[in-house]
Design a protein around this nucleic acid. Structure first.
Lengths: 317, 317
DNA sequence: ACACCGTCTGCTCATATGAGCGGAGCTGTG
DNA sequence: CACAGCTCCGCTCATATGAGCAGACGGTGT
């Protein structure tokens, strides 16, 4: 792999040729003419230059996206999109800001006029939409009800409205909580005109950005907002992740339960029909949730930070 | 030149493709199949990767030869060989050792069984032969008489004998000083059987290593060994360099004078007929001498250190 | 609505390139 | 000396690649 070249004259010759080829972009034939060598000799010297390490090729860029991790994540988990932001940041709010920025750029890039965008409520999704600067003209569909938390002023509705305004497309939004005390209330809510209208557009959604929580206290806004009984019940059913109201177990299989009926949100089947579903997970505690979400096939795009990406890759046995 | 790419997804895609192409050595067609793109798209992304600086190609190596300077020296002065040793060393003896090593490797590399090797007396040449470890079997011809200096034990004869022994080829050597007091003595010496024999082989020499001095006190062993009158006379004639006994002016034209007749060495015409003549100059004071020697066309190979190489290149207007 | 312009795409076709072959020269060995 | 094994070279021929072109698209000004 690394036997270095022969003598110093050949070394200089090889370096000159390598420069002509790689830096100046000359063809091997031209170089052969210039140096009075056969093109085969030139090719062999260049091969040697590569294998001996005389010519080193690096792939990197000035931004904060870790290209190598991104590509590995994408390939390893068969994702459509993977963006890994290289940052040592651990403070959740700051992290959301960075990931939101990256996700916003991604969304701007991948959403075209043919798409229908679905947005779920999540702090990371808000962080994204807040930093959106441009978006193709598309309908924007609210995928979930909202949760009100003291630390967040923007709600699911605002998030959708803001994005639709930026886009210039229609907004399908509604005022409803993400989770209600019983199935009956949920059913009634789903009958409401605005809610029903939004739901009717779920099938048309082609790209969505969703929240992703680990089914544990402090790792999912939904978990924290739900009654202990429901949480426990879902946990017993093997739920490890909630994807904007869709519960999945460690194998990635969606879990149906009475609790599911109390959630005002897109369901597993509908989510599965969406072409691209992007989540923005962060924090090492979410490793298993991400794994489950990806296994489920419901989520096929990830925007995350390097520590979580590394953890995901490390644990692939 | 450096507009960086579009969005993050394309960035990751481009990086993945660049890795496949440059690192894994896949063809663009294969990559196109793998990523479901046209080969044109792949080619365009790769072009973009290069021009945006995403892919950086460096040419360097672990040794102490400055490949870039070597190549530039070679190209700028139209040399057959140029080896620039990258060293901050300024102490002449240590420098000779380093350059001698590089020159020895060069000689080992470029001398083939078809060659006839000529060696002139010079400290740098001695430094080279001392570090020679292998050499094709070739005749070795002594090109100059020797100078005896208190700081040097090896003389021209030993240098040739040692090299011939290492090579396994015949040695054509003689005992005579490099410069004698008058032309008559010189003529007589040239008649001596061993001297005449060696001289008769000058025409057959295909590769030679010579000394190169700047015509000033302390910059040429020959200058220092010669009487003041002769030195001054040559200087008046415009001599700026001596190439193992061949004097050349700043334009590179060999200078014939009465002093020339007193030197027991290869002459300008004979040296000019040699295919490759390599010199091992060092020290910034020799800039003009090197320039003259190269202009003369007598010397077409240089082994030197980076400061001198840089000085030579800097002063090219 | 219209023509216009810049961008992006995939095409054709000439050229550059790679894989693998057989010959030349060198080396060590019986 | 003869021979096998080796490296190095340049060849053929199939394939990969680049240059330049023309159509498609999206935005833009009239």
């Amino acid at each position: 792999m690394e036997p270095i070249t022969g003598g110093p004259a050949q070394l200089v010759l090889t370096a000159s040729i390598a420069r002509r080829y790689y830096v100046d972009g000359r063809s091997k034939v031209e170089i052969a003419d210039e140096f009075r060598l056969s093109r085969f000799k030139v090719a062999r010297l260049l091969d040697q230059a590569r294998s001996s390490g005389l010519v080193r090729i690096e792939i990197s860029h000035p931004g904060n996206v870790d290209l190598d991790l991104s590509a590995r994540l994408q390939e390893t988990f068969g994702l459509r999109r993977a963006i890994v932001v290289d940052t040592p940041e651990v403070e959740p709010a700051a992290l959301r800001l960075q990931l939101g920025k990256a996700a916003a750029e991604l969304l701007t890039e991948i959403v075209t006029a043919d798409d229908v965008l679905g947005l779920a409520w999540a702090r990371a999704v808000t962080a994204m939409t807040d930093q959106l600067t441009s978006l193709a003209t598309v309908p924007v569909v609210q995928l979930t009800g909202a949760l009100t938390r003291p630390d967040v002023e923007a709600n699911s509705v605002e998030l959708v409205r803001h994005t639709a305004r930026l886009s210039g497309g229609p907004a399908y939004l509604f005022y409803a909580p993400l989770v209600v005390p019983d199935a009956t209330t949920a059913r009634a809510l789903r009958q409401q005109p605005e809610v029903a209208e939004a739901i009717s557009h779920f099938d048309a959604v082609t790209k969505a950005v969703v929240g992703l929580g680990s089914w544990a206290a402090g790792q999912s806004t939904l978990y924290d907002a739900m009654d202990a009984d429901a949480c426990e019940q879902l946990q017993k059913r093997g739920v490890v992740a909630d994807i904007s109201g869709v519960f999945v177990d460690a194998k990635g299989v969606p879990v149906q339960s009475k609790v599911t009926d109390r959630v005002i949100a897109i369901n597993a089947e509908q989510m599965n029909a969406i072409d691209e579903v992007i989540a923005i997970p962060y924090g090492l505690a979410k490793v298993e949730a991400v794994r489950a979400a990806v296994r489920s096939g419901l989520v096929n795009g990830i925007v995350t930070h390097s520590p979580l990406a590394r953890a995901l890759l490390d644990e692939v046995y």
